[in-house]
Design a protein around this nucleic acid. Structure first.
Lengths: 190, 190
DNA sequence: AGCATTTTTTGATATATGTCAAAAAAATAT
DNA sequence: ATATTTTTTTGACATATATCAAAAAATGCT
C-alpha cells in the first residue's frame, strides 16, 4: 500500500534517504465506509489523505442544497485544501462515495517533514503546482460551455467520474440540473 | 520597486541571507505598453513577472472568440502557469490592459534558486498554495450561480476588476454575455 | 430475494440568458 | 478639439436550462 504512494510520489520526485523513510513512519492506514465523512464543515482539517482505493465527493451547502464541487479517486491526495493549509475551520464536506482505504498524514507531521527535508518541501510545491493546473482546466470547463459541451468534455477528460459517480452528483459538479444532464445524455446516445 | 516585491513575499515568508539577495540579483525591470502581450499562444513562457503597476487580462481563443479567464493586478505574480511550470508551449494570451511595470525572473534562475535555497522552495510552495485557494473560490463562483449572483459576488470579492477592467471583458470572465452583464448592472443600480 | 430508498427519466411549463442589430456613450488617437 | 474606434446599452426574439411533479429504473440493505 505504501508502494502505491511511493509510485505516485515518484512521478513528481524520487525521495531518498531519511526523507523517503517518512513514508513508512508517518503515514498510517484508515478505512472510511461508504457515505462516511472525511471532512465536515466547521472542523479544522488535521490530516491529508492519500486515496489508495475508493472515491470521494467534495461538496458545500448553499441554500440547503448540496453543491458538489470536486471528486477524488485513487492515487490523489484528498483533503480540504483551505482548511488543511491554513488550519482554519472547514467550509466543505468530503464524503466517501465508495468505501475508501487511505493513507493519512497529520498536518503537524507534514510541517515537520517540510522543515526537515528539502525534498518534501519540493514535493509539496510540485503537488500544488499540479493541483493548480488541474483547477485551471476546471475553470475553463465551467466558463462559457453549454451543458452538452461540459458533459462531452468531462466524458473525454474524466470518464471515471461518469462511470463511478451517481449522475445527480455529476450534474451538480457540472453546474447543471440533473434533468438537463439526463436529457443531454439521451441526445448523445442516439 | 524591489521593496514592493519584498513586502509581498514577506507576507509568505521572510527571506534571509543569500536567499534574500536573489531578489536584487535575479529580478529585473520591464515595461509593457498598454495592449502589448506578456505571453502569446504557442511560445514557451520563460519568465514569471511580478506586477508592480498595471493590470493584465488572461484569455484563450475558442471558435474565434476570446474568452477571458483571469485578471492580474499589482502585487501578484503573472505568468502562464502551465507553460511556465512545465516549459511547454503556451495555450493562452496575457495582455496588458493598462501599461505595466513588472519585475521579471527567468525560469532557469528560479529553478536554480529552488535548488540552492530551501527558503525559495518553501516560498514557491506557499505561493502555489495561495493560488490554489483562489482558484477554488473561482470554481465555486462559476458553478451554480446566476449571472446576477456572479456579478454581485465579484463586486464584493474583487471590486477592482469592475473598476478597472472594460465590462465586456468582465462579462467573459464571469461566463455571461456582455448584454446580460449590462442588464444585471442596470437592475442593481436601482 | 424482497423491500425500501435513491437515482434517473420524462413531460409540461417558466425563466434566464444568448444572439443579433442598432443606437448611444465613452475612450483613444491624431 | 475632432474624428475614429471601442465599449455599453437597449430592444426584439430565440433558445437553453431550471423547476416541479410523477413515473420508472436502479441500487442498497437485511
Amino acid at each position: 500500500m505504501k508502494d502505491q504512494l511511493r509510485a505516485y510520489l515518484d512521478g513528481f520526485l524520487k525521495l531518498e534517504g531519511e526523507a523517503a523513510d517518512e513514508i513508512d513512519s508517518k503515514f498510517y492506514t484508515k478505512q472510511y465506509p461508504r457515505s462516511s465523512f472525511l471532512a465536515v464543515e466547521g472542523e479544522i482539517t488535521k490530516e491529508v489523505h492519500f486515496l489508495i482505493k475508493g472515491c470521494c465527493r467534495f461538496f458545500h451547502k448553499k441554500n440547503n442544497r448540496a453543491i458538489t464541487h470536486w471528486f477524488s479517486f485513487e492515487n490523489t491526495f484528498t483533503t480540504s485544501l483551505r482548511s488543511f493549509t491554513t488550519q482554519t475551520p472547514c467550509e466543505e464536506y468530503i464524503q466517501a462515495i465508495e468505501e475508501c482505504t487511505v493513507l493519512s498524514l497529520k498536518h503537524q507531521d507534514l510541517m515537520r517533514m517540510y522543515d526537515k527535508h528539502k525534498q518534501w518541501e519540493r514535493l509539496g510545491r510540485l503537488v500544488m503546482e499540479d493541483f493548480s493546473r488541474r483547477m485551471l482546466d476546471r475553470v475553463t470547463a465551467l466558463q462559457n460551455l453549454t451543458a452538452k459541451q461540459r458533459y462531452i468534455m468531462l466524458l473525454q477528460s474524466e470518464p471515471r467520474i461518469i462511470q463511478r459517480i451517481p449522475l445527480n452528483l455529476v450534474s451538480s459538479y457540472l453546474g447543471i440540473s440533473g434533468e438537463t444532464l439526463s436529457r443531454v445524455r439521451s441526445e448523445i446516445r442516439i
